[in-house]
Design a binder for these strands. Structure first.
Lengths: 255, 255
DNA sequence: AAACCTTTTGCGGGTTCCCGCAAATTAGCT
DNA sequence: AGCTAATTTGCGGGAACCCGCAAAAGGTTT
């Protein structure tokens, strides 16, 4: 009986797999439809929508076992779309593909991916071979696969920049949102001095110190994070949406 | 004789126009090649290169009267490529096309376009009709054409945000680079208080004031500018390259 | 030239930020 | 429990930032 359940939820190599493609660029979309047709004979039905909101809707009603999701889209961000899709269907396998190798996206994805699922992250510039491999590995076999180009950002750098911890990353986001030290302390529930300690280690890791020291560390840190693709504008938009309600509540509380 | 000169430099509707396409995305590139073939019979020879550096080289040696330039490219930025192309051949007509409607790009272009030339800015999501129109208007007729979607960012907004002056924009860039007030004053050759005045008006125009006042104005301003697409990461990269030499010289001077 | 407007500059002080120092708390290990 | 390393927190002070106020310097109009 457990097998029957699993079969229903994960029609592995049946031959009637439904696939949802969410991609706003029509050329990439048609290329992807074509490639899937060639490489994945298991797929019997392909649905294509052109933006994140429609993708969420379709995924909610359609109950797709496999989704291909563009990360850069007008309106809803790819990572956010994935979050709501996974909230409704935690077993959905999602292959992200993106124009850029942004560490920020990868971080966003890895923090929301459920245990029961699989995901992949490939670049749009990747070869047809690697794309086919990823399609099969992630959507059919349920593996996790991340393009080597993306992880590269972690290691290599002009100097051995170490990767940020989760807590450092969250204060980085708050910093880039324009919050003040006190506000960050409030939001993350810690003391003012601790926030400043986090900032201190942030400044070190982003190498804000060793530039002659004449910079404004606050804005320089944001600058470094953006240019090294640790942070991107899309994640800032998403973070702003999370900040809004909290800040409104805080204002109400204090009055 | 003047006519002969003009004909040599601007082979208007001869039927042997050379065209250079600089575009890293192969799907968009092949689509563009196809479209040009359909719409511009005047073009006898199309060259396609996949990144900005190669584009600059090719344009320098090839002497193209018309160029199509992607704005988002790995390596050299589209606006920078245009600058060097125009430096060598000021009469070159360039059609920019982009994924995004960023005010920052438009500002960058309008400040470097020579009097003798023409340019256009269209979005990749634009209809084939409008694209064809722009191709003809800019590359053949030498008109200036900007997609309506892009100018929209100037006017509409949640509140009537006014557009920045040139001087305000330059301090915004310096701010986003992480410079300190004093450094900006140095760089732009004005007093410290003047810099702060500029920042003041920046804060007003970016509406940093009317948010409860609990924000760090410096980073919040950068945040607003990024989210409203007044500024983008590509222009920051370009600005950083300009800053580098100046800052090195300043360090040498002070020691 | 006089009146007027805009921009620039200096001064002063209130606030926030940056960070060294040391005590307190927590986490990890035997 | 007991010991050690790491993290958190408070305190304090120097630097940078934010900005009101008012004088000085340019630029325009009449």
């Amino acid at each position: 009986m457990g097998d029957a359940d699993r079969a229903a939820i994960r029609p592995d190599r049946g031959s009637d797999m439904k696939l949802l493609i969410v991609e706003d660029d029509q050329f990439h979309a048609s290329f992807m439809v074509e490639t899937v047709g060639d490489i994945l004979p298991e797929v019997s039905e392909i649905t294509h929508v052109a933006d994140g909101d429609k993708g969420e809707e379709e995924a909610k009603s359609g109950d797709y076992p496999a989704v291909i999701l563009d990360l850069q889209m007008p309106g809803r961000n790819g990572v956010e779309a994935a979050r709501t899709i996974w909230a409704a269907h935690p077993e959905t396998r999602i292959l992200f593909w993106s124009n850029y190798a942004d560490e920020a996206y990868l971080r966003g994805i890895t923090t929301i991916v459920p245990e029961t699922s699989a995901y992949g992250y490939v670049l749009k510039t990747t070869s047809a071979n690697r794309l086919g491999l990823a399609l099969r590995a992630v959507l059919i076999e349920g593996q996790i696969m991340v393009d080597r180009e993306i992880n590269r950002y972690h290691q290599r750098a002009t100097t051995p920049r170490s990767t940020l911890t989760e807590s450092e990353f969250s204060v980085l986001v708050d910093l880039a949102l324009g919050l003040t030290d006190k506000l960050i302390a409030d939001r993350r529930a810690m003391s003012l001095r601790s926030v400043q300690n986090r900032l201190l280690s942030l400044y070190q890791k982003l190498e804000v110190d060793d530039e002659g020291g004449a910079f404004n560390k606050r804005t320089r840190a944001v600058n470094r994070a953006l240019l090294t693709r640790m942070l991107n504008v899309e994640t800032l938009i998403a973070a702003e949406r999370e900040l809004g309600p909290w800040y409104a509540k805080k204002l109400a509380r204090s009055e």
